[in-house]
Design a protein around this nucleic acid. Structure first.
Length: 822
DNA sequence: CACTTGTGGATTTTT
DNA sequence: TCCACAAGTG
C-alpha cells in the first residue's frame, strides 16, 4: 500500500473545497480570509503536515507564527498526531516574541547599535514592571518631572514606537516638538540602560531582531535560506514591526519584498472582523494591503462556519454589520437554528452574578459539563463579583489572567535570583533582591555602591566583591554585600552544571528566602504569607515539569520560557470547571456555552473608546469575537446598577453605585433572536440626549478614509465598504417598537420564559425564611445579628447581616442557616 | 537601617 | 476604597 497516498488522503479528509485549496497550496504568497469557526486551525495544521509528508519539505524550513504559546503547543501536537513525533522535532512554531527570543539567543552578538551598544547571548527579558522602573529612573536622572512625564505613559509611548519599527536613533531624528525631543531623550537613555543591563524588553525582541536583519546581510540570508515556508496565524493582529520581519524573512531583502522562487511559500491567515489589538499597535490595514504588497498572491476565503448555531451567527453578523471599517464577508452556517440568545437584565452586579450561577446550575442539572462553559467580560475587575457567587454556589472555576502568577511578588523575587545568576549585569534583579530577605543593606549604601560601580565600569555584583575600596559604605553593609555577591558567584558555578530545579531549591535555601517566609508565616499566621509559600512550591513544580518536558532544561531556556508565557498558555482542562476570562483572552477559543457579562455603555463598549469611532469599532469587533466563541448557547447579561470603585460620590449606604445604560451592541441584535430582555426606546432616547452617539458629523469623521497599509488594493477582491454605502444598517431601527414599555425581566424560574429547554430545578424560597431589613437573626456560628441590607431579587437574595460579635457578613440564606428571632 | 504613618493617585484590553 | 510610595520616627 502506498503510505504517502494514505496520509495524503487523510490530510484532506472531511475538508471543503476552499480548505483543501489552502492546505495544498504550493509556492508563493497566499492570503486566507478565515471567518470565525471556519476551521482555520485545522487548515494550518494539515498544511504543515502536507508540506512535510506530501511535498517532502524539511521541518527545519517551516516557520509558523501563532498568537499564544498555547496555540503553538496545540498546533505542534496536532501535527504530531497526523505524522508521528519524528517529523515535528525541528519545526519552528511559536509566537513572534518566543521565536525572536530563540533566534536572538543565537544571533544577538552579531548586532551593535550606532552607538556601539550591544547585548550578549545571555540577555534577560524585562517584563512591564522592570521596564517601567528603568524608564522611571531614567526620567529621574534627566531631572524631568514625573508628573509631566509619567513613567507608565512614557513606557507606553516607547512601546508604540518600537511596535511601529521606530528605533531610538530614528525617533531622535524625527522628533519635532519639545515633548517629542524629551521623549526621544528618554528613549535613547532607556535603550542605553537596557544594553547596560544586558536586557531587552518585550518589544525589543522583535525590533532588535529586525535591526539585526537589516544591518547584517549574512544573518538575513541565513534566516531567509532557512525558512522557506512561513505561516502566520491571526494576521489581522500583526503590527508593523512584525510584518517587516515576515517580509524580510520571506523575501530575503530589506527593501524589496518579493517571493518569486519555487518551493517557497508565505501563508497568512486572518479575519479583519477579529482585529482587537490595535492598542498594541496591531494594524488590520496590513492584512488589507497584503495583496498589493504581494501582487501574485492567492486569495482563499473560508466562509463555512462549523462551530455555531445559525442563531448565534445571525447575532454576530447583525452586530458586525454596523462596522464600516471591514471587508464584505458572509459566514455560512452548517448547523441548525439552535436556541435563542438569553438576555438578562439584572438589578445590580450581584444579581447579575447570581443569575449566571443559577443558569450554570441549571445547565449542570441538564447534563452539561462545566468545562464547556465560559464566562467572558470586558475588564478583569468584573471577575470579582462573579467569583464570590461561584464560590458560594460551589461551582468550580478557572480564572485566566488578572493577577498573573509570574507577576506575584514572591515569584518575581525568586526569579530575580535566577536572573541575576544568569546575567549579573541585571541591575533590576540585583536591586530587587539584594536586601530581600533583610541583609541590613540600606538605600544609601546601595546608592553609593551604584556610584562605585559606575565609576569603575563594573557590574553591581562585581562592585560588591571589591567594595572594600568604596570607603563611604558602612562596614556592616560592606560585609553583607560581599557575602551576598559570593553567594551569587557560588550559585553561578552550580548553575553551570546542575538542572534548574536543583539550583532553584538551593537558592531558596541558601538565600534564606524560604526560611524567612516560613518564619513570618509562623509568627503572624497570615494566610497571604502561606499563599506565597504555596506559590513558590508551585514554581518549583513548574521547574520540575519543565525539565521533564522541554528539549533543553538549561537556565536560559527556562528563563526565556518563563518571561514569555502568559496565563493564557497555562489554561489546563483540569477537572471539571468553568472558565473565567476577558474577551481578549478568549480569542481563538471555542466553548459550547458562553456567558457575556456587563453589556453596558461605558463598560462594553468601554468608556475609553466612546469618543473615538475607530475605537468603538474595535469594541464592536471584540463583541463579535465574544459572540462567535459560542457553539450552542449564548447568554448576555447587564446590570441596571453597577458599583464603581473609587471616589465616585459619597452618598449613604456604604457604597455607591451608578445607573447604567444597556450596551448599544444589544440594540444591534435583531430582537427576534433574543429572549428575556431587549433594550427599550425610552432608555435609548434618554441616553442619546446626553451623548454624541447619534450626532452624525462626529461619527462620520475618520471612518471614510480607511487606507490599506501600503499601496491601495483597488483590484483586489477584498473590498472595504466606502462610507455611507453600507447595506442598510439597523442602528436606529427598533424591530419591536411596540414591545412593552418596561423592560421585561427574564426570570430564571421555570415558566418565566418561553424557552423550549426543560428546567430541571425549581429555585423558590422554600427551605429558608424570607427576611427584611431590621430583622434580628440567629446564626449557629456568628451568633445574633441584624439584617442591614437585602441584595438581589426575590429567589436569589443575599442578606447583609451585622453580627454582634462577627461584624458584617454577606450571607446566602440557601446555605447559611438563619433563624429569625421575633 | 527598619518600621510606621500619611498622602496622593488610580482603573482596558496583554505578548 | 485600596494600594503604592514618600516622608517621618525609633
Amino acid at each position: 500500500m502506498n503510505q504517502s497516498l494514505e496520509t495524503g488522503k487523510n490530510l484532506l479528509a472531511r475538508l471543503n473545497k476552499e480548505q483543501i485549496e489552502a492546505v495544498t497550496q504550493g509556492s508563493g504568497p497566499s492570503l486566507i480570509i478565515a471567518g470565525a469557526g471556519s476551521g482555520k486551525t485545522t487548515v494550518l495544521t494539515r498544511r504543515i503536515a502536507y508540506l512535510l509528508s506530501e511535498l517532502n519539505q524539511d521541518p527545519y524550513s517551516i516557520l509558523a507564527v501563532t498568537f499564544t504559546n498555547k496555540a503553538a503547543a496545540e498546533m505542534k501536537q496536532r501535527v504530531q498526531i497526523l505524522l508521528g513525533e519524528g517529523r515535528t522535532r525541528s519545526l519552528t512554531i511559536g509566537t513572534f516574541h518566543s521565536i525572536c527570543a530563540r533566534l536572538l539567543r543565537q544571533e544577538i552578538e552579531l548586532y551593535k547599535t550606532q552607538e556601539g551598544w550591544h547585548w550578549s547571548r545571555n540577555f534577560v527579558i524585562y517584563d512591564e514592571t522592570d521596564s517601567v522602573n528603568v524608564v522611571k529612573s531614567e526620567i529621574a536622572k534627566l531631572n524631568l518631572d514625573e508628573k509631566v512625564y509619567p513613567a507608565r505613559q512614557i513606557k507606553h509611548s516607547i512601546s508604540s514606537l518600537k511596535n511601529d519599527g521606530i528605533t531610538h536613533s530614528l525617533f531622535t531624528n524625527e522628533a519635532k516638538t519639545h515633548r517629542e525631543s524629551r521623549l526621544a531623550q528618554i528613549y535613547v537613555n532607556y535603550q542605553n540602560a537596557l544594553a547596560n543591563n544586558n536586557a531587552l524588553d518585550f518589544d525589543d525582541l522583535i525590533l532588535i531582531f529586525n535591526e539585526l536583519l537589516r544591518s547584517n546581510p549574512f544573518v538575513l540570508q541565513r534566516e531567509h535560506e532557512r525558512f522557506r515556508h512561513i505561516l502566520v496565524d491571526e494576521f489581522q493582529d500583526t503590527n508593523k514591526a512584525q510584518y517587516d520581519l515576515i517580509r524580510m524573512l520571506a523575501s530575503g531583502s530589506v527593501i524589496e519584498h518579493k517571493i518569486g522562487e519555487q518551493e517557497r511559500s508565505l501563508m497568512v491567515v486572518g479575519d479583519v472582523d477579529q482585529s482587537i489589538y490595535s492598542w498594541r499597535k496591531a494594524d488590520f490595514r496590513i492584512i488589507l494591503g497584503f495583496q498589493s504588497d504581494f501582487p501574485n498572491s492567492k486569495l482563499i476565503k473560508l466562509e463555512e462556519n462549523y462551530r455555531s448555531t445559525s442563531t448565534i451567527l445571525e447575532v454576530a453578523n447583525s452586530i458586525i454589520a454596523n462596522n464600516t471599517e471591514r471587508l464584505e464577508k458572509v459566514l455560512r452556517c452548517n448547523r441548525g437554528e439552535g436556541a435563542k440568545v438569553q438576555a438578562y437584565e439584572a438589578s445590580d452586579e450581584i444579581d447579575e452574578a447570581y443569575y449566571v450561577a443559577e443558569e450554570i446550575k441549571r445547565l449542570q442539572a441538564r447534563g452539561k459539563v462545566l468545562s464547556e462553559i465560559v464566562i467572558l467580560y470586558r475588564t478583569n475587575s468584573q471577575s470579582r463579583a462573579i467569583e464570590e457567587i461561584l464560590i458560594r454556589n460551589n461551582i468550580p472555576y478557572t480564572l485566566v489572567g488578572s493577577t498573573r502568577f509570574y507577576e506575584r511578588q514572591e515569584i518575581k523575587d525568586t526569579l530575580a535570583y535566577l536572573k541575576l545568576i544568569y546575567n549579573d549585569k541585571d541591575s533590576q534583579a540585583f536591586l530587587r533582591i539584594v536586601n530581600v530577605p533583610r541583609r541590613g543593606i540600606g538605600k544609601t549604601s546601595l546608592e553609593r555602591l551604584y556610584e562605585y560601580a559606575i565609576e569603575n565600569d563594573i557590574s553591581l555584583v562585581q562592585a560588591c566583591l571589591q567594595c572594600e575600596d568604596a570607603a563611604n559604605i558602612p562596614n556592616k553593609a560592606r560585609q553583607s554585600l560581599k557575602e551576598f555577591a559570593l553567594l551569587v558567584k557560588r550559585w553561578q558555578a552550580i548553575a553551570a552544571t546542575s538542572p534548574v530545579s536543583e539550583l532553584l531549591s538551593l537558592v531558596l535555601q541558601e538565600s534564606k528566602y524560604l526560611d524567612n517566609l516560613q518564619e513570618e508565616a509562623r509568627s503572624t499566621k497570615d494566610e497571604i504569607i502561606l499563599g506565597r509559600i504555596e506559590n513558590i512550591q508551585e514554581l518549583m513544580a513548574v521547574a520540575a515539569e519543565f525539565e521533564a518536558i522541554a528539549d533543553e532544561s538549561t537556565l536560559d531556556a527556562f528563563l526565556t520560557r518563563i518571561s514569555l508565557v502568559s496565563d493564557l498558555d497555562s489554561i489546563k482542562a483540569e477537572g471539571d470547571a468553568i472558565t473565567l476570562m476577558t474577551l481578549h483572552s478568549a480569542k481563538g477559543l471555542e466553548f459550547a456555552i458562553v456567558f457575556l457579562m456587563g453589556l453596558e455603555e461605558g463598560l462594553f463598549p468601554h468608556i475609553r473608546s466612546l469618543d473615538s469611532p475607530t475605537a468603538l469599532e474595535e469594541e464592536r469587533r471584540l463583541m463579535y469575537v465574544g459572540v462567535t466563541r459560542a457553539a450552542d448557547l449564548l447568554y448576555m447579561t447587564l446590570a441596571r446598577r453597577r458599583m464603581i470603585p473609587g471616589r465616585f460620590g459619597s452618598s449613604g449606604g456604604g457604597f455607591t453605585s451608578n445607573f447604567t445604560i444597556p450596551s448599544r451592541f444589544l440594540k444591534e441584535i435583531d430582537s427576534k433572536l433574543l429572549i428575556g430582555f431587549y433594550p427599550q426606546a425610552d432608555v435609548e432616547t434618554r441616553y442619546t440626549s446626553e451623548s454624541q452617539s447619534s450626532s452624525k458629523p462626529e461619527f462620520n469623521s475618520g471612518l471614510a478614509k480607511i487606507m490599506p497599509y501600503s499601496k491601495p488594493a483597488d483590484k483586489s477582491n477584498l473590498r472595504v465598504f466606502p462610507y455611507g454605502q453600507q447595506p442598510s444598517s439597523n442602528t436606529n431601527n427598533y424591530p419591536n417598537s411596540n414591545t412593552p414599555k418596561r423592560a421585561m425581566r427574564m426570570s430564571s424560574l421555570p415558566g418565566g420564559g418561553n424557552t423550549n429547554q426543560n428546567s430541571a430545578d425549581n429555585v423558590t424560597n422554600e427551605g429558608y425564611e424570607l427576611l427584611k431589613v431590621g430583622d434580628l437573626v440567629q446564626h449557629n456560628k456568628f451568633g445574633i445579628g441584624e439584617v442591614v441590607q437585602v441584595i438581589g431579587d426575590k429567589g436569589k437574595e443575599l442578606y447583609n447581616v451585622n453580627f454582634k460579635d462577627a461584624g458584617k457578613r454577606l450571607l446566602d440564606p440557601r446555605f447559611a442557616k438563619l433563624t429569625k428571632l421575633s
